[in-house]
Design a protein around this nucleic acid. Structure first.
Lengths: 138, 138
DNA sequence: TCCTGACATTGACGTTCGTCGATGTATCGA
DNA sequence: TCGATACATCGACGAACGTCAATGTCAGGA
């Protein structure tokens, strides 16, 4: 979709820098990558990664996450966290929803309380992804 | 610091949930944590982490990062990246600045070109930090 | 010397984000 | 049955973000 293709639209006489160790002109490894991502991570992959990282891009959410991890039972409800972070209940609920949406935590309703727990695998996966960014080629 | 102390300000009769495995009322582990962070990560630590993650919270920046990593020389200049991500030169410069500001990449001016390179240690440190979030208590 | 090219900076714009108060929904205890 | 509690959702607001065109700055080549 989005016929933004027009892939190898020639190579304008752009006097690319010497690039001591580079290929020749562009960055395109020619035929090493799945689509027209032009080297580096694919667009969809980058979006998936960015979505998770964005969820961790707010200090409040980082604290909420660590708060859950620090609790004995490995879970926490909203009423416990509002006091600590010093924000309103709707705001904390909003942040927790962000974390749930990207799959970093789970939500379980038990009686009147909603218990949030960390998805360890998601965190671990994200950790691996950080390495993927580095070694996108290989 | 930050005399937001008023540490153990009583314990209001908040009928906290049963919390199967919890301590008693609040989340405060009483005296296990450095300051009045109330359990979990300290505020400054959370802000530091969030700042780095926020830099990774944009798909374009993730692609730029992986683009540098994918290049043979381990570095890239703006003119090479604009074509691939399909954005204007000022926008790419703006994104690179974000990445430089949080220490994820370095910038080196050689002649007319500015070469950006990834700071591997920063990425590795961030990877460790992801684990810290999980084990903030221990 | 002047001109070209690579890049940063500025100013502006629409969009998204973080936050709150108000309100809705469901559960538990009296 | 009714009131209180825990939480989600809604609507609104200011702040921050991503993007661009226009402009400024500096290095190389003619």
């Amino acid at each position: 979709m989005t016929s933004t293709a027009t892939a190898a639209t020639a190579t304008p006489p752009r006097t690319s820098p010497p690039a001591r160790g580079r290929r020749e002109s562009g960055v395109r490894p020619e035929g090493c990558c799945p689509t027209v991502t032009g080297g580096g991570l694919a667009e969809v992959e980058a979006e998936r990664l960015a979505r998770s990282f964005k969820a961790l891009g707010d200090p409040t959410r980082v604290r909420l996450l660590s708060l859950i991890a620090a609790s004995q039972s490995g879970e926490a409800c909203v009423c416990d966290m509002t006091d600590v972070v010093g924000l309103s209940q709707p705001t904390v609920s909003h942040h927790m929803r962000q974390l749930v949406d990207v799959g970093l935590v789970t939500r379980e309703q038990r009686g009147r309380w909603a218990y949030y727990a960390i998805v360890g695998d998601a965190l671990a996966g994200l950790r691996l992804d950080l390495g993927v960014v580095l070694s996108t080629g290989s």
